[in-house]
Design a protein around this nucleic acid. Structure first.
Lengths: 144, 144
DNA sequence: ATGGGGGTTGCCATCATGGGAAGGTCAAGG
DNA sequence: CCTTGACCTTCCCATGATGGCAACCCCCAT
């Protein structure tokens, strides 16, 4: 039985997080020493490691609750796990697409920006009114 | 002079957000009617639209403060704007890379998961201890 | 017994926003 | 004139997942 600091070091989950996870019911309340110190055994450290790895993969606490339930359940069907994982992959990819759209739009605006000491700037102009610099074939009226 | 609801509709920024932006000093406090209603003119609506578009591109409120200052500054150099924009593009791309790493790792795990009604599951095994399913050439010991 | 390095709880802050309560205001219509 | 409903106001609470800090307790070695 080790204390929270050691459990944190071994699992890679900060003591603060461990207490937080306990407070929200993600993990069971740890046993306490006579002095009130939380005590952890190998199984709990392993569980914390599981949680950390899931977090590293971007799973939310809520999803991790489900993953933990499946991990503990010897009768689980791998289909359930796979469904959860693929749903998360889809979520991640949706976010990636969103971010790519932002980055793309911004790069497009930045590409036509001189970047000199004059005030003319398609980026600012794009943010003000103009949806995204029309440029309908090179014949667009000079914005300046 | 229109009220906050109309300004919200025309700018695409919710009334709630407009009040919030005012409270944090992102925009100036609006004039008030005798009854205390906030009143907006076309310029302010335009400014709100600017903010909304910047938010759509993923800029933080803090960055938008800078963008607004540049927008208002006729003496600005487009280089300053461009630098801000490209910094943000870099941030976005860093986040994209992170998310791609997560999605990739998870897809890798999911790919070898049967997804049937048996409990065997490389995804769960990957989250527990094993960094990422070794599979050193097909001769890896069956985990089951 | 004392000092230092743990542990404990609890509150506040983040970031940007939504929700809702409690109450004031305005325009229209009976 | 009064009601109704749609608007506005302020203020407080909640989100997700953490970090930071304060005030206090505990244990071990010197």
């Amino acid at each position: 039985m080790i204390t929270i600091g050691d459990a944190a070091e071994r699992s890679g989950v900060s003591a603060k997080r461990i207490r937080h996870y306990e407070s929200i019911g993600l993990i069971d309340a740890a046993d306490r020493s006579k002095a009130g110190y939380r005590l952890y055994d190998a199984r709990q450290v392993e569980e914390l490691g599981f949680i950390r790895r899931a977090r590293d993969l971007g799973f939310s606490i809520e999803q991790i609750e489900d993953l933990l339930a499946l991990w503990r359940d010897r009768e689980r069907s791998s289909a359930d796990v796979k469904r959860l994982a693929l749903k998360h992959v889809a979520d991640l990819e949706a976010r990636i697409v969103e971010l790519q759209a932002m980055a793309g739009a911004l790069k497009h605006l930045a590409a036509t920006c001189q970047g000199d000491d004059r005030p003319d700037c398609p980026i600012i102009q794009g943010l003000a009114g103009a949806p995204a610099a029309p440029r309908t074939g090179g014949k667009a009226p000079r914005t300046r």
